[in-house]
Design a protein around this nucleic acid. Structure first.
Lengths: 198, 198
DNA sequence: TGTAAATCTAGTCGCTGACAAGATGGACCG
DNA sequence: CGGTCCATCTTGTCAGCGACTAGATTTACA
């Protein structure tokens, strides 16, 4: 191993953050222990506190990083449906970040970095709605936005908690979600009722 | 207060469970401390362990009770849309139960009482889908079921975590959800675009 | 080169969950 | 009425944790 063991770690902040993501992905945020992370990084039990202040500070940093990655992932997706798919893909690909992001009681709500990243993600979500064709939107943008968000968030959440293992089965969750999105906002009316696609 | 102070509490199990719900509703499951609950009930710090074995046992009991109440609430609702409304109403009315129910890492997964209650709730959910009119169902019951569940669960989750405070505003969340449900499964086409119902 | 700031260590405190051993009192049976 | 069993509760203990403090070490920079 690279056990150089200098007095200064080099990049303890990143090391602790990465170790935290491992632990959270494996056993959830509750299983996270600052002392354990310090041991993994090979430093004393109080070292992480200098980078994150306390446990809440560490989780706030995880959430902020998550929202930043999330905003990027959403921005890259073309159209509302694929934006929803990106939502689901992010949750599946970054479970640790996702779990912490939507547990606000774990955060320091006034953290500027968190606020900025969250605002960027919110804006990326909001922008997705405006991509809807007029006909599908009905008479209320606000409702459509809440519906799209609820559908994606509910699916992602149930997926991560293992509640969809049975109904989804071996299918690719992202494909399943495309089916859900088409149910909420039917894609024009070319082959609406024909079961042809499979 | 009724500080009778007999050696035997009388109904310590119920007292601890109720106190736990208070704490969870206020500060989340993480803030829950067996010793604190014991203090609230006026018993020694080890007394609750006799009823719940350990912290996981207590949370498992909360989840089981939640699923039982949840199944009842769903069963009483007429039709799929109102079943979704009942889903949202349950989350808003029993936030402590709801929060614990969908955090499986907090449970003892092999607990028979939990398994039974959860099966009853799952069946009540599944039964809701069969109430859909043929036209709205499209060609896939399975997809419609996942969509309905995801929409209700996502909306309830985002609502409880405070993420919908801005978009929902002063509106009654249950009414907002009725709007979402009508977007996913349009109710025939009588007065589709007219905002008349209020 | 010298000094201030950043980073890390070592020690301590109160709290927690879990466990073990023993006290208490009710239930049930003769 | 007397005895025994057992569920319930108490007391005591242990290791692990988060938070805090004081001090050591290294880097940065002027």
């Amino acid at each position: 191993m690279t056990s150089e063991r200098t007095y200064h770690h080099g990049d303890l902040r990143r090391a602790v953050l990465t170790a935290a993501l491992d632990v959270i992905a494996a056993d959830g945020p509750d299983a996270l222990s600052l002392r354990d992370l310090a041991r993994r990084a090979g430093v004393s039990h109080a070292a992480p506190a200098h980078h994150f202040k306390d446990r809440t500070g560490l989780l706030t940093a995880v959430a902020a990083e998550g929202y930043a990655l999330f905003a990027d992932a959403l921005a890259d997706a073309p159209g509302l449906r694929e934006r929803g798919v990106a939502y689901v893909r992010f949750a599946a690909g970054h479970p640790a970040h996702f779990h912490v992001m939507f547990r606000p009681e774990l955060h320091r709500p006034d953290d500027p970095e968190l606020i900025a990243a969250k605002a960027r993600a919110t804006e990326a979500l909001r922008a997705g709605i405006s991509g809807l064709p007029e006909t599908a939107r009905g008479d209320d943008d606000r409702l459509a936005g809440i519906a799209a968000w609820s559908l994606a968030h509910g699916f992602a959440t149930l997926l991560l908690s293992g509640n969809l293992d049975a109904p989804v089965g071996d299918s690719d969750p992202e494909d399943v979600f495309r089916g859900l999105a088409d149910l909420l906002f039917p894609p024009a009316e070319e082959a609406a009722t024909t079961p042809g696609s499979s």
